[in-house]
Design a binder for these strands. Structure first.
Length: 292
DNA sequence: CTAAAATCCTGGTGGC
DNA sequence: TGCCACCAGGATTTTA
């Protein structure tokens, strides 16, 4: 038997604003720790985190289920549960969206419930899964069919469905500014504020550029840039910013995000920040000149 | 169709 | 030092 450290099974904490790479990191870390464990009890400390079913149904349904596997779709964490004693429905999905400040951590042994803990699952072998979410934007579902949530989402950026041709066609079916469009989860699923700015910088495109003016060449570069920044993010185990300690390293490799007043890594021009929608947007005014 | 605004939240920040 | 208005930010909903 492994001699676990006293508290944390997964010592990593993750970042604010979990985007695709951060959720991917969480899914990979939790997979080995949680798979095969039985959920013994659910403790809900902020009922509005739970979208469906009702809190009482949730507390009744979850105990005795087994955690089969974890996966990620866009920014959602999908935990497959098996109901060993159910004849009608052998599996269900426990789905988390971490919102802006949500985090999942696992603890072994005694645990003092924290100020921002919203949901706590007691697991077999004295393990605990904690959903901590200071800003309460995170959401939890327990549902039979995850398609209810996932069917609204656009393509997965790292999947084969996402191609330069598909992106070009989608860009030209609409007439929208690039940044809000890339943040639209029904257009492309998984990008958030950080990775959108980083991808637009790599592709040398202005965030307000109108989508239907992109050439095939520009679209191909943006497609490659999106994949590159997401893959980098995953390789660095996500990004860690703000006041909470987290485990990722990608924040040390941002090219523009949060780098207002600092030199562009490509041309040395001072990075600027502007507001688009309600999002802080960082870009290089020289590399990313408007061209429409 | 697109877009802007409002909504939900709290910890951090800046002004005084 | 304390108080407080203000703000970020993902996704959804409402309004234009």
């Amino acid at each position: 038997m492994v001699n676990w450290p006293n508290r944390l099974l997964v010592p990593l904490r993750h970042n604010d604003m979990p985007e695709l790479p951060e959720v991917e990191t969480i899914a990979r870390n939790l997979q080995t720790v949680l798979s095969g464990r039985i959920i013994l009890a659910a403790e809900l400390y902020w009922e509005r985190s739970l979208i469906v079913p009702s809190p009482s149904q949730f507390r009744r349904l979850v105990p005795s289920t087994e955690i089969v596997s974890l996966s990620r779709r866009a920014k959602y964490l999908d935990i497959l549960l098996a109901f060993p004693h159910s004849f009608r429905k052998p599996t269900r999905h426990l789905i988390f969206h971490l919102g802006m400040s949500g985090d999942l951590l696992t603890v072994l042994g005694g645990y003092q419930v924290g100020q921002h803990d919203r949901l706590l699952l007691r697991l077999s072998e004295d393990a605990i899964l904690v959903f901590n979410d200071p800003r309460k934007f995170g959401r939890v579902w327990l549902i039979d069919d995850p398609g209810v949530i996932f069917s609204r989402l656009g393509p997965e950026p790292l999947s084969d469905d996402f191609t330069p041709e598909q992106l070009f066609s989608a860009f030209h079916r609409r007439r929208r500014q690039l940044k809000p469009l890339l943040l639209d989860q029904s257009f492309l699923a998984g990008l958030g504020n950080i990775y959108t700015d980083e991808a637009l910088f790599l592709a040398r495109l202005h965030p307000l550029r109108c989508s239907d003016t992109l050439t095939g060449e520009e679209t191909a570069q943006l497609h490659a840039a999106i994949r590159q920044v997401l893959e980098e993010g995953i390789a660095y185990h996500g990004a860690s910013i703000d006041w909470v300690y987290r485990g990722g390293e990608f924040q040390n490799h941002f090219r523009v995000y949060g780098r207002i007043g600092k030199p562009c890594p490509r041309c040395g021009t001072t990075i600027e920040r502007t507001l688009i929608g309600r999002r802080g947007t960082y870009f290089c005014p020289l590399c990313q000149r408007r061209q429409d």
